[in-house]
């Protein structure tokens, strides 16, 4: 379980450029679970992601990962082993010159023997469906494929939690679908806890729980259905509900006997 207790984060504290990114955030992330974080640009989502694995240390409050406080420098290594972080730009997080080299990077840092690294590469590449690209140089891959490699690199370290910081923002619709397929599979089959940060509402409908960020605070927390009920509030925070949900709401207003909110096209079509 990851616990955040009264966490605040201030960039450039005590200077004229001081900027409060997070204000008094409290949340518990059990394992396994699928938590989605949504929020407009500048709402503190990325700061939140970096706090979870100790890349940033909270200015006030505590981040505790399975009992390890990230304030204690000694714990950082263990925390990063447990909490993998996938970034937005696939180009800037691939270190290796071939796919397998890159996936091996994290394992090498953990000091694993070559035999085990080999097995973990097999497992990780299989999980993201990239086995046949093992010897490829990354620059020959598409954006979606590169991002899958980045996920494989994290996966090979066998983390308990994977934090994905807007992993699909720089991808085309096809790449986006690939990544979401992988994420769902990881949660269902590997029982890896997923913390997905995004502003694509279509991506969060599979989450168990959604937390909405606005100006550095968690303003709403609940299941996707609960969140999407409050579409007017969401608009106020610069977010919108999926098109299907909007459509189902209009249909209800026109007198159709269907439940509200509806989250996926499949769900809507079975009701109609």
């Amino acid at each position: 379980m990851i616990q955040l207790r009264n966490v605040s984060y201030v960039y450039h504290e005590g200077t004229t450029q001081e900027k409060v990114a997070l204000k008094d955030v409290n949340i518990e992330i059990p394992s396994p679970s699928f938590l989605a974080i949504i929020g407009a640009n500048g709402s503190g989502k990325s700061t939140f992601a970096r706090l979870l694995n100790g890349l940033l240390i909270p200015t006030h409050g505590d981040v505790i990962v399975d009992g390890l406080n990230s304030k204690d420098f000694e714990n950082l290594w263990e925390i990063r082993k447990k909490v993998g972080l996938v970034f937005q730009n696939p180009d800037n997080q691939i270190i290796g010159m071939t796919v397998e080299e890159d996936v091996a990077f994290g394992c090498e840092n953990l000091g694993l023997p070559p035999k085990e690294i080999e097995e973990r590469i097999d497992f990780a590449l299989k999980s993201v469906g990239m086995e046949e690209y093992r010897k490829y140089p990354p620059h020959l891959l598409s954006g979606g494929q590169k991002q899958r490699i980045a996920i494989a690199g994290i996966l090979a370290m066998l983390p308990k939690y994977i934090v994905l910081d807007e992993p699909t923002t720089m991808l085309d619709p096809k790449g986006r679908k690939e990544i979401m397929g992988v994420v769902k599979k990881l949660y269902k089959e590997e029982k890896t806890s997923i913390i997905l940060i995004t502003h694509h509402m279509e991506e969060v409908v599979w989450a168990d729980r959604i937390a909405v960020f606005n100006k550095g605070e968690i303003v709403l927390e609940g299941s996707p259905k609960e969140i999407f009920m409050k579409d007017e509030k969401l608009e106020e925070w610069g977010l919108s509900v999926p098109l299907v949900t909007k459509l189902s709401k209009c249909l209800v207003e026109r007198g159709f006997k269907i439940p509200h909110p509806i989250l996926t096209i499949e769900e809507l079509s079975t009701w109609l």
Binding site: L55, W77, R80, F87, Q93, I95, E108, G111, P114, I117
Partner: peptide, 19 residues
């Protein structure tokens, strides 16, 4: 890149193996 390396437990040659 430095951030991504750190997130993947990179800390120089210390305790590192080679694939």
């Amino acid at each position: 890149l430095a951030e991504a390396m750190e997130a993947r437990c990179y800390r120089g040659a210390k305790g590192r193996t080679r694939y």
